[in-house]
């Protein structure tokens, strides 16, 4: 039973190690899906938003962690 718990925890941490990073990525993908599939915006705009959004999320996540570690 504890092995199953460890496997579940490992799988969870594979994708959700930083909850805010994961949440931001999911929100970004959802926004691009709404733009591309729902509103029919030029798909290239969605592609550019997805690429740049990921870079922004990465920059925010690393800066936030650095600030947190410096503060502690």
């Amino acid at each position: 039973m504890s092995l199953l718990k460890e496997i579940a925890a490992e799988l969870f941490s594979m994708f959700m190690a930083d909850a805010r990073l994961s949440g931001s990525i999911l929100a970004l993908v959802l926004a691009v899906a709404v733009l591309n599939l729902g509103l029919g915006v030029n798909p290239m705009f969605g592609g550019a938003l997805l690429s740049l959004g990921c870079l922004g999320i990465l920059a925010e996540a690393t800066a936030r962690e650095t600030g947190k570690r410096r503060g502690s």
Binding site: L21, L26, V29
Partner: peptide, 10 residues
């Protein structure tokens, strides 16, 4: 994206 960005962040 969830997995790769996590690795890249770390």
């Amino acid at each position: 994206l969830l997995f790769g960005m996590g690795w890249l962040r770390k």
